[in-house]
Design a protein around this nucleic acid. Structure first.
Lengths: 335, 335
DNA sequence: ACGGGAAATGTCAGCGTTGTCCGAGTTTGT
DNA sequence: ACAAACTCGGACAACGCTGACATTTCCCGT
């Protein structure tokens, strides 16, 4: 009594005494079917537990599905998931579903994963570029599949992209520290190779240069080694002979580490994180915040827009950031 | 110069001067094709940007895809996303991809969303039941699609399920409070209708009954109204004429609220949350913890197991919880 | 009663792939 | 040297559905 085979249109048609096309009409078109027939068909379908096969339907209809792919690097990072939530919501408004795939932050697997998804004939592809080079996607793009790169720009590929105001956001944070007198400001982040971190680092340096601080190398902790935790990075900064009076973090992992170390630091060290987090308000941590849901929604909208207007120019969107002052970033330097 | 049509097996075959079956062999079987032909075919495929159409392949192969669906209630809840991460990982090991769909915690949309996914011929269905009744899935189950209900048992449906040790975990937390003398213990959670909350509430009552406390109603805050935040619930407990000396939270949202209110409470109120969270260690918050990734992996494994052995009995798995003592749960009652 | 037009239903082919079966060419065994 | 076995490649049909087009049925006015 296992797996009896699935009913098809033809089975339903036979039972209802109509042609399969009529059944098809009942389930798809909804046009030109008498109420009588319609009910008879629906009855038979129910009895046979019929469910239309979207595979066949989509194939027949020209190989387009209702699926949009989102390729994510690290699934356990809450940031990406929130972005995914935004994407899903926007897609749902248009009757599309999202498939999620992970490259496990491994550049090598990116093309493999993407390829598998494209074989599924996804309607559009959203991805967080991990590999060095996305030129392999150019063919697909020319075939009309919208490609949107999320959080980082794609390399060697013309594609829509949505990124954060990384540089500006970080510069604003650092400026708010220099405005109250800080000059010795540490920067922690890892890993350093990534676009977002490079941008934020640039913003940090830029803001410091504005107040005449040009040598920042010894205050930068950009550890590629994941074993070096944010906590250790902060500690190594504090252990300097001339330690910074303020620290900024380039990513959300840095914030948690910094909070742990800096809580019982005396004299207190100012801190501003990048990316808001739960309880940051209760803890009084100032952060550069942005709306990750909106990042996802925007990415989805770009894809949908491209679908509606295939010949439009490529768009680059920046999601604004804003500094939220909660106290930790307003601690003045000790005098 | 838009959307030139996509190359098919036949196109590649024509260019390579072979039959389409041979091209098919190159891309699928890998059997019985000479090295010469193989390379010629691959060359032509590349030139034409050919990519096999999985829609057609799956249809031909009998309508089975490599996709497993996970139907989630609320996309923004980090708990579900972590579960999803676990599912994705386990599936990836078996070459399957995950599609994620949301019911937006609306019982009405559950059947609609599930139906759409089943029409896509997903290989298995994992879902967090939201609706009152999942009997509508019985037909599909009989057709051989594994159905696994996650975090809550399905209702009126025979299906594998994975849930947490809700009752035991909560009871353990409360016992650890009663062991150090607490008797007046508040319980916050919302909404109350949900299985997990009912179970945890039962665990709470059970542990209190063991020490002779049977009237707990006035210490229970089970607000269905989402406008009543966890913070307000905690505050209303503290405002009682005879306020509790300890509070336990039935969900992760409760913890954040409790932390905010209880930080500057004097005399200090003991607290234990359900579900671990970032910085809980730094804040010294005791919690009942569990591994959400493992919850996801287990759900995926159940589905895979059912796929491998369709006639196996239905399985119910409980994911263990454990109490992590970090201080907030070890505060004794004031004397 | 009859023609005409719209509504309801049917026929047929084909979307892109692969399983089955078959044939031609090549190697192996005795 | 000849059958047997094996390798490589092709023709054809079918997976379940729908678009184009054809046909039947029904209703209405005159």
């Amino acid at each position: 009594m296992t797996t009896q085979s699935r009913a098809t249109l033809a089975d339903v048609a036979r039972l209802a005494g109509v042609s399969s096309k009529t059944v098809s009409r009942v389930f798809a078109d909804a046009g030109n079917v008498s109420v009588d027939t319609r009910e008879r068909v629906l009855g038979s379908a129910k009895r046979l537990r019929f469910r239309p096969n979207n595979l066949a339907r989509n194939l027949r209809r020209g190989g387009v599905t209702n699926t949009v792919a989102f390729v994510i690097g690290d699934l356990t990072n809450p940031f990406y998931f929130t972005v995914a939530a935004g994407i899903e919501r926007e897609l749902a408004l248009h009757g599309l579903t999202m498939v999620l795939a992970s490259t496990d932050d491994s550049p090598d697997s990116e093309e493999r994963v993407v390829d598998a998804l494209l074989s599924q004939r996804v309607r559009a592809l959203l991805l967080i570029p991990i590999a060095e080079d996305q030129s392999y996607l150019d063919g697909e793009r020319q075939l009309g599949t919208p490609v949107v790169s999320v959080d980082r720009p794609a390399r060697n590929l013309i594609a829509d992209s949505v990124v954060l105001q990384n540089r500006l956001g970080m510069a604003e944070a650092v400026r708010s520290l220099t405005a109250i007198g800080h000059r010795k400001i540490g920067f922690i982040s890892n890993p350093s190779g990534i676009y977002t971190q490079r941008e934020r680092l640039a913003g940090y340096r830029e803001a410091l240069r504005e107040v005449g601080v040009t040598h920042t190398g010894h205050w930068e902790r950009l550890d590629d080694d994941p074993a070096v935790s944010a906590e250790q990075a902060v500690q190594s900064l504090l252990a300097l002979p001339d330690p910074p009076t303020a620290i900024v973090a380039g990513n959300n992992r840095g914030s948690a580490g910094a909070v742990r170390v800096l809580r019982d630091q005396d004299p207190p060290v100012a801190f501003i994180g990048f990316d808001d987090f739960e309880l940051a308000d209760a803890l009084g941590i100032s952060v550069v915040a942005y709306d990750p849901i909106e990042l996802g929604r925007t990415a989805a909208r770009l894809a949908l827009g491209h679908l509606a207007e295939p010949d439009a120019f490529t768009k680059q969107v920046e999601i604004p950031t804003r500094l939220i002052r909660r106290g930790s970033g307003e601690i003045p330097p000790p005098r």
